[in-house]
């Protein structure tokens, strides 16, 4: 009983350290600089190309 508790508590501490490191990295790389942008950006259709794709592939040939 106590042994498994030791193991689980140790796991918890390790997980917290990993999660903390992850969040620190995310903060450092600027992912929290703009909290609203990503939510808006996903709604905009960015993916219809101005030049149709087949024209692009023709050019490559």
């Amino acid at each position: 009983m106590t042994q498994i508790l030791f193991f689980l508590l140790g796991m918890a501490v390790v997980m917290v350290i990993i999660a903390g490191a992850g969040i620190f990295w995310a903060i450092k790389s600027g992912q929290f600089d703009d909290m609203e942008g990503p939510a808006q950006r996903i709604l905009m259709d960015d993916d219809d190309p101005l030049i149709p794709r087949y024209a692009d592939s023709l050019r490559k040939k």
Partner: peptide, 20 residues
């Protein structure tokens, strides 16, 4: 930006600890 990052780190630490 530096201050904001510092604040966020503190909140993250407090949040993770509080949960556990």
């Amino acid at each position: 930006r530096q201050r904001r990052a510092k604040d966020l780190r503190r909140i993250a630490i407090a949040g993770l600890s509080a949960g556990q």
